[in-house]
Nucleic acid binder design. Structure first.
Length: 503
RNA sequence: GCCGCUUUAGCUCAGUUGGUUAGAGCACCAGAUUGUGGAUCUGGGGGUCCCCCGUUCGAGCCGGGGAAGCGGUACCA
């Protein structure tokens, strides 16, 4: 841009909004491969694809109704011409509920679909957490049979194993009814205890990270963390806290290390809680899920009952699942990286019902694709070798672009990725360009070759190796390693030979 | 939201007790080595020293306020 003499033009700053990310070529390719693997597993189970819009009416997403100015807490929202509030979707489940309600009569019941896409959350990003990220969901809508829940768990397990994570993950299962039942027994039922129940659930959810003492603090008076932030507790009495902590520690319900049946039976037989009806029905559902996953050949090294799983706070109504990676690695900064949860889900029998008078039970599982990608990368399961770039046809003589274009076309017709250099620089920059693009070879035809009806093909990969030994300028310019001259007609054949060497 | 740290070129960072036109390395671009990636040499483009206010003859540096980034924590449909 020209600078006026009086001063500089005010340029927009090239920057990306916080929490957003640009994804470079290698990652796009690896990500697509990963998504295709998951998709393959889901198709195998008979789930069908669905794509819904990224934008929904705010009302349809629920929860974040625009009350005053703009509902900017949590979701990205804006007003349409007719002043209706719209929002970017913050997950794939709420749009599914809307879709099912809108097309209810036409859909097969149960309706089983998978969907992947970006979702947006307008909140503070953190390490490994973005405001735009990709989820991969599968859901079964229209049945309250826990067979659907069990199936989703084994399907999630299959998907993770198809990605090479066998032995590095576990799907943990719990049931919200169990937790609700226990909370009823210790006197936390009823509408006036709603906030307290949420606080209790949050505390339980942190058991993994904070352990018994941390959870005790959160269930009682509260807890101050290392950075000086104080989290208000649920203000329970010791008598109320003890059963909850014992549940988490597995000392009351025993046998976390045993089979899923042992775990469920221990829970079932606990005299303190099995007087409660909700608790019993939750335990019963877990028992049936244990039977089904067991029958399918999934033991508790892959799918495991775990009393600390809570997941999101409000919309889950029954079984809840969480996929956790069970390995630690060392990150770029030398600190240990723990990936933890890479997906989760559960039964949400109330969501579709928001749109209809009759209840529509549903269950689903969502994979956090970006996070899973980061984990796979750390584990080296992505096939780190970068893709070869295109064969580059150099422009030696600017009057003969047609000839060069024809060579590129010939290569493409043979199924070889190729491009003619479309910049304006000389030969050396073109070589640098080819280098940067990762081209396996370049096609050179200047006046000399043209006169002989030949082309020179330089193998850049072999050339780089050969050149590494050269130190002086003369040897460099005259060496010209790893290149051959062939008749024009043998172009494709000669390029194929070089490609074969490098794949 | 709360706590802490940070902010000078695309990147990593220097910058004296406040003192002329703010520097380095790397990266980038161009040229030379006369048609070849590297090396070398020469040259070049790039800066609102995060912003505002104050102190001062004079602020990248001192004081106040703010913003943004990073990290932790909370929330997380």
């Amino acid at each position: 841009m020209a600078k006026p003499e009086t001063g500089k033009p005010i340029l927009p700053k090239a920057r990306l909004p916080k929490g957003m990310r640009d994804v470079p070529a290698a990652e796009v390719r690896a990500m697509e491969k990963m998504l295709a693997t998951i998709r393959g597993v889901y198709e195998l189970y008979g789930f069908e694809p669905l794509a819904t819009s990224a934008i929904e009416f705010t009302e349809a997403l629920g929860k974040f109704l625009p009350d005053q100015d703009r509902p900017n807490a949590g979701v990205f929202s804006f007003q349409d011409e007719d002043e209706e509030w719209m929002s970017l979707r913050y997950d794939l489940t709420a749009p599914l509920a809307r879709y099912v309600a809108e097309n209810y009569d036409a859909l097969p019941k149960p309706y089983r679909r998978y969907q992947t896409g970006s979702v947006w959350r307008n909140e503070k990003p953190g390490p490994g957490r973005f405001r735009e990220f990709v989820q991969f969901d599968c859901d079964t809508v229209g049945t309250d049979n826990v067979a659907a829940d069990a199936e989703i768990c084994i399907m999630a397990a299959d998907a993770l194993e198809a990605l090479g994570l066998k032995g590095n993950y576990v799907i943990k299962i719990n049931n919200r009814k169990v937790l609700d039942g226990i909370m009823a027994v210790i006197g936390l039922s009823g509408a006036d205890n709603f906030v307290r129940r949420l606080t209790v659930l949050r505390a339980i959810d942190k058991f993994d990270r904070l352990g018994s003492d941390g959870v005790r603090a959160l269930l009682g008076k509260g807890r101050e963390d290392e950075s000086g932030d104080f989290t208000k507790g649920a203000d329970l009495t010791e008598a109320q806290i003890n059963p909850l902590v014992h549940l988490l520690e597995g000392t009351t319900f025993g046998v976390i290390m045993g089979s899923n049946f042992d775990a469920v039976n221990a829970w079932k037989n606990d005299p303190q809680f099995n007087v409660n009806e909700i608790y019993n029905s939750g335990i019963d559902e877990l028992r049936r899920m244990a039977e089904l996953t067991n029958a399918a050949g999934y033991q508790n090294d892959r799918i495991k009952m775990d009393s600390s799983v809570v997941r999101g706070l409000e919309y889950y109504t029954g079984p809840v699942f969480e996929a956790e990676l069970t390995f630690d690695t060392v990150g770029d900064d030398g600190k240990p990286v723990r990936f933890g949860s890479v997906g989760g889900g559960g039964r949400y029998d109330g969501l579709v019902g928001r749109f209809r008078s009759e209840a529509v039970p549903a269950t689903g599982f969502s994979i956090g694709v970006s996070r899973l990608y980061a984990a796979l990368k750390q584990l080296g399961k992505l096939g780190a070798d970068k893709a070869l770039g295109p064969v580059l046809v150099l422009v030696m003589d600017k009057d003969r672009l047609g000839d060069y274009q024809k060579m590129a076309s010939t290569l493409r017709q043979a199924g070889i990725a190729a491009e003619m250099y479309v910049g304006t620089s000389g030969m050396k920059p073109q070589m640098k360009y080819a280098d940067k693009r990762g081209s396996p070879c370049v096609i050179i035809q200047g006046g000399d070759e043209k006169a002989k009806g030949e082309v020179t093909i330089k193998d850049l990969i072999a050339g780089a190796k050969a050149a590494a030994a050269i130190t002086d300028r003369a040897a460099w310019t005259e060496g010209r390693p790893a290149q051959v001259q062939v008749p024009e007609g043998k172009l494709v054949e000669a390029v194929r030979e070089i490609l074969a060497r490098h794949t």
